[in-house]
């Protein structure tokens, strides 16, 4: 696998030359691989929102470089809009950006800005709506008549319809109830599976990240503190707790079991895994 986005020594400082000067991202280097499902976690103020707004050129680095493919995205500032079409960014609570008369028109806003033909726009709108699980019948409705969960899906479809190479979602499930959360994440997983394009999900819910992603990057205090598969990251659960992050409840049970002398891999993070490990352990002891 080769990287699709490469961030090299990125620093972003807000309010330079003022007493409020503060680096939100400080010397971050990372790679996002083509086709992977990456999770970025970190508590509020760890720099994750600032970081992702650099990936599609909404913010310009104070220093350092962001590469898309092997091109510096700021090589030609006039072409920064192209970057935004290739790296789709869904903000937190994206339903608050809807503005068109119909769901269809709202989803078509991005593709229209790309200057595509009517026919191509139509195909993309319908495809995107299907990916997020929106019924065709809703396309002619006003987005403001929909429920909160449906509005969010419209907003996500609006970005998917640009058919970006990389889809970045900032807290896509924030504020949804368990059922809405589950079904939206299922839609995102299916999108990743079927499109095969890169998906980056930013979250502060460990459980959510643990269950969905191939790889995790942990941010704290404006820098990357860990990176690896969920298994690798959760095996360092104590360090996660030390930087003020939650670990999945299952991992906490495993940690507690280990503390009590049960020989179990502390890096388990799903219910099924821990169940399997415990059953194996019990079977093992029975044989002895």
């Amino acid at each position: 696998m080769k990287p699709i986005i490469r961030v090299d020594n990125l620093t972003h400082t807000y309010g330079q030359d003022t007493p409020f000067c503060r680096s939100a991202v400080d010397g971050v280097s990372l790679e996002i691989m083509e086709g992977e499902f990456l999770g970025i976690i970190g508590h509020t103020g760890s720099g994750k929102s600032t970081l992702i707004q650099h990936l599609n050129g909404l913010l310009r680095p104070t220093s350092g470089t962001v590469y898309l493919g092997d091109r510096d995205i700021w090589a030609d500032p006039k072409k920064i809009r192209e970057v935004r079409f290739q790296v789709g960014l869904v903000f937190q609570y994206p339903e608050y950006q809807l503005f068109e008369e119909t769901v269809y028109k709202d989803i078509a806003f991005g593709p229209k800005n790309m200057g595509l033909s009517e026919q191509e726009i139509d195909r993309r709108v319908r495809d995107a709506a299907a990916f997020v699980g929106l019924d065709e019948g809703l396309l002619d409705k006003s987005p403001f008549e929909l429920s909160g969960g449906q509005k969010r899906r419209v907003a996500i479809a609006g970005v998917i319809a640009m058919e970006p190479k990389v889809l970045i979602l900032d807290e896509p499930s924030a504020g949804l109830d368990p059922a809405g959360r589950r079904s939206l994440l299922e839609n995102i997983r299916a999108y990743h599976r079927e499109r095969g394009t890169t998906v980056v999900m930013v979250s502060h819910s460990m459980d959510e990240v643990a269950e969905n992603v191939d790889r995790i990057i942990v941010l704290a205090d404006a820098g990357v503190v860990m990176s690896g598969t969920p298994h690798q990251v959760f095996s360092r659960a104590e360090e996660l707790v030390a930087v003020g992050l939650n670990v999945p409840q299952v991992t906490r049970v495993a940690m507690e079991l280990r503390r009590r002398g049960v020989a179990i891999d502390p890096a388990v993070y799903t219910v099924a895994e821990l169940r399997r490990a415990l059953s194996a352990l019990k079977g093992g002891t029975a044989v002895c």
Binding site: N56, L89, F91
Partner: peptide, 16 residues
């Protein structure tokens, strides 16, 4: 703050 956020979100969809 809200205006800033909405502007960024629309820019992310190619608004100019």
């Amino acid at each position: 703050e809200e205006t800033d956020k909405i502007m960024s979100a629309q820019k992310a969809r190619g608004a100019d």
